[in-house]
Amino acid sequence: MPQNILVVGELENGAPSTVTLELLGGAAALAAGGSVSVSLLGSGATAAAAQAAGASKAFVSDDANYDTFRGEQWLPAVQAAVEQSGATLVLMAQSTAGRELGPRLAHRLNTAVAMDCVKVEDAGGALQFTRPAYGGNAQATYTIATNPAIATVRPKSFDEATGAGASETAELPAAGASRVNVVGKEVTESEGLALTDAPIVVAGGRGLGAPEGFETLRELAAALGKDKAAVGASRAAVDLGWFPPSEQIGLTGKVVTPDLYIAIAISGASQHMAGASGSKTIVGVNRDKDANIFDFSKYGVVGDWKQVIPALIEELKK
């Protein structure tokens, strides 16, 4: 069934973000003869419209007040884009912005949102939204009875759109007032390669026993190649203060889909696997041969990481 789709885009360094391009890719497949539009807010939005592959029309505002996400400012603009595009389906990322916009937009449009979807499909005329639940132990498929349907989509769920960007733009209003006032920001500098870009991710969990374990993991990442491997952590390790929250992999952290994921002293709880199970090859290193991580692993090493990882580093250096 044809759908008019609005992708709520996000800008990154003046261009549509990777996940915005993924949503446009998903939209192209779901539109089935309907239209695909994108909304872009913030400095450089008009110029970025030309890079929004797969969108025929872009709703834009270059107002720099949109650069820092504030829900109260973004909502009227996104709502205007939904109404002007005649969207029957609104797609946004399961990002800081999408997590807040999805429910609030749904309320304002008297409809509903399916959060953190990994699959959106047209099942014989009705859109179906599939998302993990119960920490990933289960998956749930929903329909939305009201119009438009809204979904936030987990990164890496769709392939990026290719081709020409939007040829037509329409102006959205400048940002209004916000009762929520942003007074400070602190960016956590990650060491080396960004977690979500790295072809190899080395991740550590509570089983490392102490924060020093991450130093060994950094040595392993260096031995695998500084331009290839990044280090991440499970929520348990982050909650213990062993690693920065910005490098957390899992349901409440980042989603990574590297070619190779090496999970070290991580039990493999569903909460964690929600951020890693899309990896092409998973290697588990754990003392417990019954650990859940081995249910997801292609290769398993049963042993003490304190012995296995230094041996692995030595072997890689040979």
């Binding site: 509903a112 639940a133 041969k289 398993g300 041996a311």
Partner: peptide, 25 residues
Amino acid sequence: RLQLQKLFIPEKGAQVEFIAGDTPQ
């Protein structure tokens, strides 16, 4: 408004191959 159609346990794809060896090396 959000209507649950199906709740299910997803299948796990991987069949693990345990790496043999008498020592960590």
